[in-house]
Design a protein around this nucleic acid. Structure first.
Lengths: 208, 208
DNA sequence: CTCGATAGTGACTGACTAATCACTCATCCA
DNA sequence: TGGATGAGTGATTAGTCAGTCACTATCGAG
């Protein structure tokens, strides 16, 4: 095996990436460190040399997840066609929908929510939502109410993807999933109309 | 010990109740059958006589959870002061907020979402959301969009409670939690103004 | 009172897992 | 060249947990 050695600093982010994939699959308690190690193609002993504990490994993965989420929201701001607060928020939603098309980052957040009782994980989760909320708020300039709705529909998006009802034709499923773009695996080509995104069906509840 | 024996049929719902409490605390994988047994004050061996597996026990708890959710939405319909679709939906939201003030039913749903990869649990979760969505839709007569928003803000409510930011005064936290009633433990006396509930701050996004 | 059925338990097992440790091997600099 | 440093691993440990089994206690019917 002509396996080139790399430095621990080079290896760590690779392990984080493996951890995101593995933890996204079966959650914090349902995933073993050996699973992560296998995903990263190293021994589990070495995972413990790179990270002090399973808990810290998960926290590292979660932090990295929110790095990418915030980064993606930033891209949304840049490419926004409208400069109104709600237009920017909408573009952020589109960028976010693209990001989580692969489901790993989405499921990791869902699983993290189920592990809040672990102190460090709860703290990391709050940190993440703080970053997202503050970023969305300050960079869009939207009202608190609009930002709140932005996050609420983000949560709905998580639910729809978690339940796997994106493609269902059942009435209740289409009610929940309406306007939520389904994960088209073919990434890279999101050119099919990029208006109307974060809050599905525009402003649906124009009534009240 | 003058412990009266009860029938298995009497005991089962008590164990379900204990399971709701225990699983709500630490989730599906983080909770042992012994934890549930201790909560129910019986041996873990007997839990396995009442339920074929941990998985089926969790499914039973989840089904019971949605029984109570739907029942609570029904109460919301009954006591609605307005008869408009959105008025009814609003009253449903208020009833739901009351129901989940104790957090157990809420956290169970969050934990269930993190265990969707277990086939039976995923099915039970879909079943539950189907019941809730269809009930809300047919009994309120609201538009699909309004029902979708109802569920979306329900999910936001779950997030806020999970993060434990109901009482936080940080700006980002109040943005997310605005209008979401915090769990006033003193149940039974929800007389302090019962208007404006499910969708916080009335129709916040009147702008868009 | 007796007997069959059912409520209920202690003790066990086989599989699994977070974390540790002693170890090997590659790399790099003096 | 040689030795120090750091990359990376196999084997082990101490503990946990879902599920089983043999068993006792209680109850109700005749």
């Amino acid at each position: 095996m002509a396996t080139k050695l790399s430095t621990a600093e080079e290896r760590r982010p690779l392990v984080i990436a493996a951890a995101i994939t593995a933890f996204a699959r079966t959650g914090y308690r349902g995933t073993t460190v050996a699973d992560v190690a296998a995903e990263a193609r190293i021994s589990s002993a070495y995972v413990f040399k790179l990270f002090p504990s399973k808990e810290q490994l998960f926290v590292g993965a979660l932090d990295a997840c929110y790095d990418r989420v915030v980064e993606s929201l930033g891209h949304g701001v840049e490419r926004a066609t409208s400069t109104t607060p709600d237009g920017i928020l909408d573009s952020m939603g589109g960028a976010y929908a693209e990001l989580i098309a692969d489901r790993d980052l989405l499921m990791l957040q869902v699983h993290a929510q189920s592990a809040v009782e672990v102190p460090e994980i709860g703290a990391a989760l709050r940190r993440g939502y703080q970053r997202v909320t503050e970023f969305a708020s300050t960079r869009s300039g939207a009202t608190d109410a609009a930002v709140q709705r932005f996050i609420a529909f983000g949560q709905l998006c998580h639910l729809v993807a978690t339940l796997g009802i994106d493609d269902s034709t059942a009435a209740w499923a289409t009610t929940l999933a309406a306007g939520i773009r389904h994960p088209d695996f073919a990434a890279g080509a999101p050119d099919s109309g990029d208006s109307a995104s974060s809050s599905p069906r525009a402003d649906a509840g124009s009534v009240a």
